[in-house]
Design a protein around this nucleic acid. Structure first.
Lengths: 199, 199
DNA sequence: CCAAACTAAGCAAGCGCTTAGTCGCGCTCG
DNA sequence: CGAGCGCGACTAAGCGCTTGCTTAGTTTGG
């Protein structure tokens, strides 16, 4: 019998492969990562990858999809549990920035490896991206309607807000001085400033 | 004799190679670009690249360095010609965002291909990056000193400001709806909001 | 006639992926 | 009950191809 932590470490081989691929893609980039590298990080022979995934690109797609779904679900949860547009925006941008720090590997793949997906897979992921953008745009629209925010270009402001949070994945590493806690707090404050929120 | 536009098109072969490489790296990414691709975009045989550059990485370095220097010089010019910290910040972030749209190929290489440089070349480019960050941080500090800006974390705010502008290179393409003009105006306004500038 | 710019041909290494088979485990059935 | 069978997980070996880069030679302007 395995303890829970052994379970998590040994895990299902498919999941272990996805974690290994996420690590490698984030560290080296998709094209600089070899299938042999992924296999050895997961403790398999080079051929072992193809028992679980039909191609290297299919593995990227599964990792990218998981990342997008996780991000979308996080944002939905954060938006729903907020009492006002101001609180929602704080939670959204703070939480999203924090997520890009804590899960910077997944974040990098989501944000920077999109172009390496096949055309069909890109189309599928685009749907998830639209959902993500919509969450933010709706909070902005509601805030403007209630007079809490002063924003002339909702889509443009939403884009800039997301840019701040997304870019965290580009510079964050575990030995960065700033903690995820501090990042969350900073970006939540900055977000409210960006929408001219009444304070 | 060549007309100026023919000069620019034919150009010096080294420059033509750098432009071809910038196009290819921006479109496909460094590792997905082959030296054969760069050569044919520049109208040379595969071997012709190595008359002018010792390796594919050396070519990336020259392109990256040119991009960093151009960006740094632009920011210096913009900061110097402004009469107040508010005007300086408007010019810096608006101009930087605009630059990342108009020169999104160079921008992508500067921001997203950094990790593919050799260790020595990374160190050299890091120096240029520090200069770029310092320009923004100094404008923020001066604005805070004069009481024009209200900012508690200067480095953190500078980082977020740059993130907004840098991220333009990730999503911008020539057929984007938003024009560089509109992007400049939007981001200049957003920058002033981020620092709580008196309006 | 020489140096610099360029090319045709190709080399060694590494790539994604396949093939042919081994291993071990649960299940049937005499 | 246990011999044997089927099957999914996995590997050793390697195939065909592309890669970055080199070599040996040709062309060309001064």
């Amino acid at each position: 019998m395995l303890t829970p932590s052994e379970m998590a470490e040994a895990g299902d081989t498919t999941l272990r492969l996805m974690m290994a691929a996420a690590d490698a893609f984030a560290e080296l980039g998709y094209h600089a990562t070899t299938t042999r590298d992924i296999a050895s990080r997961a403790g398999l022979s080079p051929a072992g990858v193809y028992v679980h995934f039909s191609s290297k690109e299919a593995l990227l797609f599964e990792v990218s999809r998981l990342g997008h779904q996780t991000a979308r679900d996080l944002l939905h949860r954060l938006a729903e549990s907020a009492a006002s547009p101001s609180e929602a925006l704080r939670a959204l941008i703070g939480g999203f920035a924090r997520w890009h720090a804590e899960h910077y590997q997944l974040g990098r793949i989501v944000q920077f490896e999109f172009r390496n997906l096949s055309q069909e897979h890109r189309a599928e992921v685009r749907g998830l991206r639209r959902e993500i953008d919509t969450v933010v745009a709706e909070v902005l629209a509601e805030g403007v309607r209630r007079g809490d925010f002063v924003v002339d270009d909702i889509r443009g402001t939403a884009l800039a807000l997301m840019s701040m949070a997304v870019d965290v994945a580009r510079w964050y590493t575990p030995d960065t001085r700033r903690t995820p806690d501090a990042i969350e707090a900073t970006y939540a404050d900055l977000a409210l400033r960006l929408v001219g929120a009444a304070r």
